[in-house]
Write a protein that binds this DNA or RNA. Structure first.
Lengths: 359, 359
DNA sequence: TGAGTGACGTTGTACGTATAACGCCCAGCG
DNA sequence: CGCTGGGCGTTATACGTACAACGTCACTCA
């Protein structure tokens, strides 16, 4: 029997090995080491640790194996497992930038759900100003089991779509999608809430600092905003494109405020960063917020409450977006069909909005 | 000869296979497929693609193999490669939170350098409010080749230190370190620059809103600040602990300003977020910035220029920290000994600081 | 002519895991 | 008594790669 030899080995083995000792990478215990220590075959270890043992291995043996694994600090080699299984338990998250609080939160939400399922998340190669990367799957780690992509990561999308992997799209047109599932925020509703809030306060001349990004999200928002405002007699919406930075926001707002004709009394900005720029522009022109002009943003970043007055904004549940995206992908990987998700958004009225000044 | 059979296969193979067609995950071409298509053995493919062919394979064959690989869209299976090599080309980055602009930038810098070396970066499991995770290597993806850890990720450090992997520490005491290398910012110099700026403007009563985080960085900064201020006759520094949020910053500043005795004329805050809170507190008390009180921050986040007046702060080159950390780790993995790095920081004087009010 | 020498590849194997397929032994049953 | 069948494991194999260790020719040179 092999068992006797194994037992002998196991007896002296535990103290002798010391995978702790130097801690060198190569010395990690393998399932075969565990098997020797427990006096069973490697296959048995695999069955036990994979929870496939009921009906095939006795409880006594199961305990022995588990104890041995624990003693040796056994951790399965993921490379080997991936190779064997053909699945990597790794998914790719494609976002335009990570240094933006919004997408950092999306990542956080996605990573949390992934971890619950034993999955890891890697980010699209160089998460900053991607550029025309040759192929995301090239530099991205490992083979992947699936992809979650924001429609705002325009550069990467071409390559991603052709990848043939299960794909969940964020902020993208549910119809057009080559995606198996989509996760969206209720963009139109957010726009309506903002419009309703401002119109309710009495504003009639509203300007929209529109993100100069060609994405479904911003198109839908612009349209919903226009419809809501134009639906009220005497109210009008004008739009001005703006890059997504404080500085660009300031410049765009200055352009708007320098236009001939009556000045808008409210500025709706496509995100909080832009809104911060808009506030600076207003102040430079000697306008008080909110007395002379109201300003709103989107996202509810930390920035929103750092400004004075605090910014009226629409909270977009970024973590929830990431989490829902990951859940959809997990469903997809289980062979089922996930539902398209639409997450609700909330207007947070704060100090930057008030009724327009009396003329 | 095997070659003839292979050639026959290759002739019909290319159009027939279509790894593009359905794009299913399992259908990716392997090095053996490439070998068949090129009419050579798998070993030869490996030699060619691994650039180990000079002197062993003819240029003609090399070209054939490369063409075949290109046609089939061959991408090596990283799991198999890792298994074979025993190295994963993946490193772990441990940071306290990712939704903080600073660490998102650290990640960005690190990821860029890693990509240049063909490495991937994974983040410590749940990058938000980690909590007492059992073992980072458990949930972290794959086996790892090395670790970069910020000393601010206190929870994770215990497990990381025992890991026995090549370790680069960020923001940590160069002496104490169990790390093979450290990357630091010139924290003391930053503190001296701020102190010099304020003292030069004439401030004598300075309060320090000190991050309530037990880390080397903040200890060094507090000490350097105290030394610089106390070195000037008649000047005094008082400290007040604060959590790292706008709200906590506001509360801490309110505590400072409510103290009995003469009010400080300048608030030095341990980061820009805190500083934003401090500004709010000052305004609530009717103090104008910078006329009645000066405020400074650290980090130079986007927030700093969004505030009004713009925040005087110390720019900490976050991307450079990540990049330097990764370079040190790469050096380490090459078997060489990297030097400890100290990166310079710059004071950016802006609108939130001015001479103190005349009494 | 026959051994030596490159040049050019090939065969074989190992990495660590998961699982299909196959024992072996004992209880129970006809 | 022989046969079945369940309980408990085992043996063998494949995943795709990288590389060590071998051929095998075609020439060269003594």
């Amino acid at each position: 029997m092999v068992a006797s030899a194994d037992r002998a080995h196991s007896a002296g083995g535990a103290p002798g090995k010391g995978s702790r000792g130097t801690g060198r990478t190569g010395e990690r215990a393998t399932s075969r080491d565990v098997a020797r220590a427990a006096g069973v075959s490697q296959a048995t270890v695999s069955l036990v640790l994979g929870e496939k043992w009921p009906g095939r291995v006795s409880e006594r043996t199961v305990e022995t194996v588990r104890a041995a694994a624990r003693d040796l600090g056994y951790r399965p080699n993921l490379a080997a497992r991936s190779l064997r299984l053909g699945r990597t338990r790794t998914v790719l998250l494609v976002v335009p930038v990570l240094t933006t609080e919004f997408f950092a939160r999306v990542y956080t939400g996605a990573a949390r759900v992934a971890a619950d399922h034993g999955f890891g998340v890697v980010l699209y190669p160089s998460p900053e100003g991607v550029g025309p990367a040759p192929d995301p799957f090239d530099s991205a780690r490992a083979s992947l089991d699936g992809v979650i992509a924001s429609s705002m990561a325009a550069d990467a999308l071409v390559a991603v779509r052709g990848g043939g992997l299960p794909l969940v799209m964020l902020d993208s047109d549910p119809d057009d999608a080559a995606a198996a599932a989509t996760v969206n925020l209720d963009i139109a509703d957010g726009a309506r809430q903002v419009a309703g809030h401002l119109l309710g306060l009495g504003h009639r001349r509203v300007a929209h600092l529109a993100a100069a990004v060609d994405s479904w999200t911003f198109r839908v928002r612009a349209r919903a905003l226009a419809e809501a405002v134009d639906g009220v007699p005497g109210a009008a919406l004008s739009a001005e494109p703006a890059g997504l930075s404080v500085e660009e926001g300031r410049r765009a707002a200055e352009r708007v405020l320098a236009r001939p004709g009556p000045r808008p009394t409210a500025l709706v900005c496509d995100d909080d960063i832009l809104a911060a720029g808009a506030c600076k522009a207003a102040r430079r022109l000697g306008l008080r917020i909110p007395d002379d002009i109201s300003v709103t943003g989107f996202d509810d970043l930390a920035l929103a409450t750092a400004l004075e007055p605090e910014l009226t904004t629409v909270r977009l549940p970024a973590e929830a977006v990431g989490a829902a995206g990951m859940r959809a992908l997990m469903t997809l990987l289980d062979g089922e069909t996930p539902q398209d998700t639409v997450l609700p958004v909330d207007l947070l009225p704060r100090g930057s909005t008030a009724p327009p000044p009396r003329p």
